[in-house]
Amino acid sequence: MEFDVGARLRAVRKARKMSQREMATKSGITNGMISLIEGNKTSPSISSLKKILEALDLTLSEFFESDAAVVDKFVFRHNELEKITPEQVDGAGINPLSSAATLRRLGYSQGSSLLMLYETYEPGADTGEPYTHEGEEAGFVVEGELLLEVDGEVEVLQVGDGYKFASTKPHRFRNIGSERCVVISACTPPTF
């Protein structure tokens, strides 16, 4: 399932009767960048999207929640995992590394106290500036290697290594290897 970040952001901004310029001022993200994101010309880093959503008074989970009715099911095939970071349009040249990180959400955040993600980081992919949110998160590297920065401390994780930390500490993920990195993670409460 593809999630159209640009269309969703534009719809939410317009519903709040906010111009791109007002949102840029309130979020600290340039008007040009917001225009590129809304036009799906670039994908925002997680930290940039978080700043934009804070300006809209939305959580990441609220932003990415689909309007589809939540179905009571317990198995989700890989192609059913909602992709919450769209592919970057080639040639946009803005924040190129963040587009190489793909997060796929298991299930629905509505009515759930747990978020599970299947995260893929292509070589060089980076979540951007360290960011924070409510709760705690944990995960395991199942393929490749990952640089994890938490509250200014940096560690490199290999296959089989795991992490767990309070999400209120500034954190950032980056694939420093030459191969793709896959992480299975959990976060509570749901923020995506």
Results as ranks from 00 to 15, higher is better:
125 A>F: 03
133 H>F: 00
138 A>L: 15
138 A>S: 13
116 M>C: 15
121 Y>L: 13
140 F>I: 11
118 Y>W: 12
128 G>H: 02
122 E>A: 13
140 F>C: 08
125 A>Y: 02
139 G>P: 02
121 Y>I: 06
142 V>W: 10
130 P>L: 07
126 D>C: 10
141 V>N: 02
125 A>W: 02
119 E>G: 13
115 L>P: 11
122 E>M: 14
121 Y>F: 12
141 V>K: 01
139 G>R: 01
115 L>F: 10
120 T>K: 15
140 F>Y: 09
133 H>W: 01
134 E>D: 14
132 T>P: 09
139 G>I: 00
144 G>T: 03
121 Y>W: 08
135 G>E: 00
134 E>S: 13
127 T>F: 01
131 Y>T: 09
137 E>H: 05
120 T>S: 15
142 V>E: 07
137 E>V: 06
142 V>A: 10
124 G>T: 06
114 L>Y: 09
130 P>R: 07
132 T>F: 06
139 G>F: 01
136 E>L: 09
135 G>Q: 03
127 T>K: 00
143 E>F: 13
116 M>P: 08
135 G>F: 03
124 G>P: 04
122 E>N: 09
138 A>M: 15
139 G>T: 01
138 A>Y: 09
116 M>D: 09
131 Y>R: 06
126 D>W: 09
141 V>L: 01
133 H>Q: 00
124 G>L: 05
138 A>H: 13
116 M>G: 12
132 T>C: 13
122 E>I: 07
139 G>N: 00
123 P>I: 04
134 E>T: 14
117 L>I: 11
131 Y>F: 10
122 E>C: 10
114 L>M: 11
114 L>F: 09
140 F>K: 09
132 T>A: 12
141 V>A: 00
125 A>I: 04
134 E>R: 14
128 G>Q: 02
135 G>K: 02
138 A>P: 05
115 L>D: 15
139 G>E: 02
115 L>A: 14
141 V>W: 04
117 L>A: 07
139 G>L: 01
144 G>H: 01
128 G>N: 04
133 H>A: 00
134 E>Y: 08
143 E>N: 15
136 E>V: 06
129 E>Y: 13
144 G>W: 02
131 Y>C: 08
127 T>C: 03
128 G>C: 03
117 L>M: 11
127 T>L: 02
141 V>C: 01
141 V>M: 01
131 Y>S: 08
116 M>E: 12
137 E>C: 07
129 E>M: 14
123 P>G: 02
131 Y>L: 07
114 L>D: 04
116 M>H: 12
126 D>I: 11
138 A>C: 14
144 G>Y: 03
